[in-house]
């Protein structure tokens, strides 16, 4: 292939990556993909790629000399690649192009199931739990959780979920009236009467690919209210930890459930 055309193709491929990084950062959509400390790095990377792509594009026809010596038999080509330039261009551009077109910034229920949506708390790794759980005491529970006007303590979903694996916490929270928020989704296991739903949030360590679903079960006295599937909901009720099929489950017996605005940081983060 003509070297100038090769430079142009490669520069365009780099500029496509750069545009994706900068667009997702500038639009704020990057919050669904990366933990906070990776976001500025991604933006800087996008800018760096833009500089490299533009520089190479603008100098694509220019002669350039490396000015150093090469041993005998050395092919001395700093630019020869492993793959045909057109194939390299397509391999770089097609997957990212399709992904940008396909993404809805969230996982489907099937992927969420794979990421632990229907796992019981005991199936989550200990190392994972130890990195995210603050040391809690009864005093901290009383002081650290604001009470709503109608008498519910506001908890984040992760505390309720992990309390299942912590006997002390579990005994403190069992029977407590709590309010929490998360995404509203169908309960597919142990729901013979159709009176249950599931509430979850994602926990991101570095990026969405390593995220885990953190769920609790919602129990209603009758049919659950009609709320948008996978939409955000605020629920309040009494927290219980029943033993179901040999496994402790975090179950919130709900008094109320309403749609809610998504929080700015939708996922739980490492810190």
């Amino acid at each position: 292939m003509n070297p100038r055309l090769r430079h142009i193709l490669f520069s365009l491929a780099v500029l496509v990556w750069s545009a994706a990084l900068i667009y997702f950062y500038a639009s704020g959509r990057i919050t669904k993909y990366l933990a906070p400390d990776f976001r500025p790095i991604a933006f800087a990377g996008g800018l760096g790629l833009a500089v490299m792509g533009m520089f190479n594009l603008l100098t694509s026809g220019q002669r350039a000399d490396c000015l150093h010596d090469h041993g005998g038999g050395d092919a001395h080509d700093h630019e020869a690649g492993d793959i045909h330039p057109l194939a390299a261009f397509l391999l770089m551009v097609l997957p990212i192009g399709l992904s940008v077109a396909w993404t809805k910034d969230e996982y489907s229920p099937a992927a969420l199931a794979r990421k632990g949506l229907y796992d019981s708390p005991s199936q989550m790794g200990n190392a994972f739990m130890s990195t995210v759980m603050p040391p809690l005491t009864r005093e901290m529970i009383e002081q650290g959780h604001r009470k709503t006007d109608d008498g519910y303590h506001q908890f984040n979903l992760m505390e309720l979920f992990f309390a299942t694996g912590d006997r002390e916490m579990q005994s403190l929270i069992d029977g407590m009236k709590v309010e929490t928020e998360g995404r509203w989704i169908d309960e597919k296991t142990r729901n013979p009467n159709g009176t249950r739903k599931r509430l979850y949030r994602l926990f991101i360590t570095c990026c969405a690919a390593d995220s885990r679903a953190i769920p609790i079960v919602l129990e209603f006295n009758g049919p659950p209210p009609e709320l948008p599937e996978n939409g955000w909901a605020k629920v309040a009720g009494t927290m219980r930890f029943p033993l179901e099929e040999g496994v402790l489950q975090p179950v919130l017996v709900c008094d109320r459930a309403d749609s809610a605005e998504p929080p700015y940081e939708e996922s739980f983060l490492r810190r």
Binding site: F38, S99, A110
Partner: peptide
């Protein structure tokens, strides 16, 4: 559904790794 799952995982890993490759 598979397309949206693939896209989210693909973009998140790519966004994370591309600056370091650069």
């Amino acid at each position: 559904d598979s397309q949206q799952d693939f896209a989210l995982a693909f973009l998140s890993i790519l966004f994370e790794g591309a600056p370091f490759i650069l």
